[in-house]
Design a protein around this nucleic acid. Structure first.
Length: 478
RNA sequence: CGGGACGUAGCACAGCUUGGUAGUGCGCUUGGUUCGGGACCAAGAGGUCAAGGGUUCGAAUCCCUUCGUUCCGACCA
């Protein structure tokens, strides 16, 4: 199926948030469906957002000693069966190739659902001494998981991501690494996406298959549902043992290294859409917006209009701003609506009235605020304006997050909070029975994480009444 | 994987009940007038009615199967 008619208004958020989301993904031309269920076409405008995320993360990764590598798409099935928890976690959702060169394959090939196994194999060959450690490497790729229900960016049978895989001499270093890259993701939210995250550690039930601990960043969507937006894992020595990675240590003894992995995916784009978007469509933070400023000429055939627009365009381009001059012959109203749908953070309007005064009108996507500037001021003002817009978007999202974390002392309170949307902040005894019970009694509420730096406000588990020392944020999640 | 809705031009849909020439609006192309919140006039182009099978003289329409989309659950980034 191809794109819908852009003239049709999108569904309002409060009428049907899920439908609104799908409408925005398609009408802002981020994504389209391919012939195979759960596999998407990433359109130029949508992919450009991903490239901004990649650019940011690549820089931050490199600063922390990470190198990019690339490993194969396929994993022999015989290799897959070694790490027990891992295989049990992923086997049901693997896509497997059984034919090659027109013949049945003796050892079928699994299309990677994640690359712990091949990284482990690669490291087995690369590492033989403590001098070869640490290994801090990352790859950008797509992975395939045969999902039952799929949604653009949030859950696809194939999705784009980065996966970092590291090896260390000691467990402390590994844990430190998992924390460091969790902070990178958190900063990416602050600096790039204008999305505030809750950072924390996953409960054992929500942990990555094969990990000792999983740390995550959780975002809160406009509708009050949570979205796990990135994870880092302390893998301990499990994979290294299963895949036979050893090194000769400082004491001339064979040792098993400690491993981590960490990843974020195109799901982050879903978070941006659902945190910032409104009834007019997408709202993009300037740092990830493929187009940061759009210039809309009014009565563009009148003398001087296009010249003035072109001048501003050239100046901004030279200043490194991602700018678009919409010189198409659509009406201004059409252009306003179109670029709002696509979430362009700042619009510059130049028409005869402005030109007469040597001015232009600047309109912010996030709140509709209009500023009138002289043509001379524009170039110098825009970088600051974009920063201000970023700040306004972040603060708006942060206010929404903070307003939707509510303490709950009983399961009834938890249910009420989760029905309304948002996080129920609750004490927890630490057992999975209570976690399961919450899910049952709140109709789908799950433990998102044990947030860092949040103090206990009671010592009683609201489910079983036993002693509790952990704070858990429960929410309904995507 | 269960339940609902859906699949006809690029998009949104009508036509199907009661089988008989493929329709409307938007978009697209060309020309002209417009232009400060999704403009208007005129002339055009564009379809194996999701796919496969069946019933029939004849199927978009009736029957069966498959695939895909979407929403709600269960499961997972």
């Amino acid at each position: 199926m191809a794109m819908q008619n852009k003239n049709d208004a999108i569904t309002a958020r409060d009428v049907d948030f899920a439908q609104w989301y799908t409408d925005v993904c398609r009408k802002a031309e981020l994504i389209d469906y391919s012939p195979v269920k759960g596999f998407s076409y990433y359109l130029p405008y949508g992919y450009a957002i991903w490239e901004e995320i990649q650019n940011y993360l690549n820089k931050e990764f490199r600063k922390r000693g990470s190198h990019n590598v690339y490993l194969p798409t396929v994993i022999p099935m015989s290799m897959f069966n070694k790490e027990k928890e891992h295989i049990e976690g992923f086997a049901p959702e693997c896509l497997v190739a059984t034919m090659g060169g027109g013949k049945q394959l003796e050892d079928p090939l699994i299309i990677r659902p994640t690359s712990e196994i091949l990284f482990s194999d690669m490291y087995r060959k690369m590492v033989s001494s403590y001098r070869d450690l640490p290994q801090i490497n990352n790859q950008w790729c797509s992975v395939v998981r045969w999902e039952k229900t799929t949604r653009p960016f949030l859950r696809g049978s194939e999705f784009l991501w980065q996966e970092g895989h590291c090896l260390f001499e000691t467990h402390d270093e590994a844990i430190q690494n998992a924390m460091t890259f969790l902070d990178v993701y958190d900063d990416c939210g602050k600096d790039l996406l204008a999305v505030p995250f809750v950072k924390g550690v996953k409960t054992p039930k929500e942990r990555f298959a094969g990990a000792l601990n999983t740390y995550s960043i959780e975002a809160l969507m406009h509708d009050g549902k949570a979205l796990q937006s990135g994870t880092t894992h302390d893998l301990g020595q499990g994979f290294a043992e299963a895949y036979d990675i050893k090194f000769l240590g400082r004491q001339n003894k064979l040792e098993v290294p400690f491993q981590t992995s960490w990843g974020v995916s195109t799901r982050m784009i879903g978070a941006v859409i659902m945190v910032h978007g409104d009834d007019n469509g997408l709202v993009l933070p300037p740092a990830v917006a493929p187009i940061q400023v759009v210039i809309v000429p009014i009565r563009q055939k009148e003398a001087g209009i296009m010249e003035a627009c072109t001048k501003v365009y050239e100046d901004l381009k030279a200043a490194g701003i991602r700018v678009k001059l919409d010189d198409s012959d659509k009406t201004p109203g059409w252009k306003f609506a179109e670029w709002e749908m696509k979430g362009v953070p700042l619009r510059v309007e130049i028409g005869p009235r402005d030109l007469a005064e040597g001015k232009a009108v600047l309109t912010r996507r996030v709140n509709g605020q209009k500023d009138t500037l002289t043509l001379e001021e524009i170039e110098a003002s825009i970088p600051g304006l974009l920063k201000e817009i970023h700040q306004q978007m972040y603060e708006k999202a942060l206010a929404h997050l903070n307003a939707n974390i509510t303490e709950a002392k009983t399961v009834e309170e938890m249910k009420a909070i989760l029905d309304k949307g948002g996080y129920a902040k609750a004490m927890w005894c630490g057992c999975q029975e209570c976690e399961d019970k919450v899910k049952e009694l709140t109709q789908g509420g799950t433990a998102r994480c044990v947030p860092f730096g949040v103090e206990a406000f009671s010592d009683v588990c609201p489910v079983c009444g036993k002693k509790a020392d952990k704070v858990v944020y429960f929410a309904k999640a995507y």
